[in-house]
């Protein structure tokens, strides 16, 4: 806490310099390989028949879970930046987001190809009749425009503000994805509950910070100059 007479300077100016461009490129490369590891693991398992008695179920489940994990990782970037001050993390976020779409596409392909074997009538019936498939499909449809606009050209074209508004739909996608898992399990909801709690934490942190921000902006009008207290939010 500190009084308003000493206004906090923008932290970015005083913050230690982040990693160099070369280091970021290296980090991106490492992340790229890391994100492909689950795919490699399951392809290898499939090739050597090590995915148990029901490999199609194992692949469907794994591709779904990795979609959810990467989605949570993507949503963790902003809170992590705020807590650690590692602003360079934002430069890795696009790749994480695109891998969410990659694994979601694999998940959908597994369902359409391996599970239903292109039985479009059965798939259409499933999407309409089964709530967990309905919302899973909705989450995928919402992901498509985000993946399509994950390039600098799209940001320039849309303008930062509109681009950001569009990409906020990822919060809804997160909720749909957790519900999709929740409604699918037969009885033991432990796992979807864990994913749900992490998602609640990540979205809750944003809501809390936003509320803090709102109060800080209201504060100057509420108290006379000299008495007001401005909390410093760690960045």
């Amino acid at each position: 806490m500190q009084t308003a007479t000493r206004r906090p300077t923008a932290p970015a100016r005083n913050a230690p310099r982040g990693p160099s461009n070369a280091q970021i490129t290296l980090a991106k490369l490492a992340l790229f390989v890391l994100c492909l590891l689950p795919l490699g693991w399951y392809l290898n398992g499939l090739w050597h028949d090590q995915l148990g008695a029901n490999p199609i179920e194992a692949i469907t489940r794994a591709s779904g879970e990795w979609t959810l994990r990467l989605l949570l990782a993507t949503l963790a970037v902003t809170p992590l930046r705020r807590l650690t001050g590692w602003h360079w993390l934002i430069r890795l976020r696009r790749m994480l987001g695109l891998f969410v779409f990659f694994y979601a596409s694999l998940h959908l392909a597994t369902y359409v190809w391996l599970d239903q074997f292109f039985d479009w009538a059965a798939i259409a019936k499933d999407i309409v009749k089964r709530p967990f498939i309905t919302i899973g499909f909705a989450a995928f449809v919402l992901l498509v425009p985000l993946a399509a606009t994950s390039c600098n050209f799209a940001i320039r074209r849309l303008g930062g503000r509109r681009w950001q508004a569009l990409h906020r739909s990822v919060y809804a996608i997160g909720v749909l994805a957790v519900l999709h898992f929740w409604w699918l399990v037969k009885r033991d909801v432990t796992e979807p509950l864990i994913y749900g709690l992490i998602l609640a934490l990540l979205l809750g942190a944003r809501a809390w910070w936003r509320e803090q921000e709102r109060r800080r902006q209201l504060a100057p009008r509420a108290a006379p100059l000299g008495k007001r207290i401005i909390p410093i939010v760690q960045r």
Partner: peptide
Amino acid sequence: VDHPRWSQASERRLGEFGK
């Protein structure tokens, strides 16, 4: 008679590819 959350019209015999 479907389960409320999935169809019971077909099944996967373990070890088989199609349903």
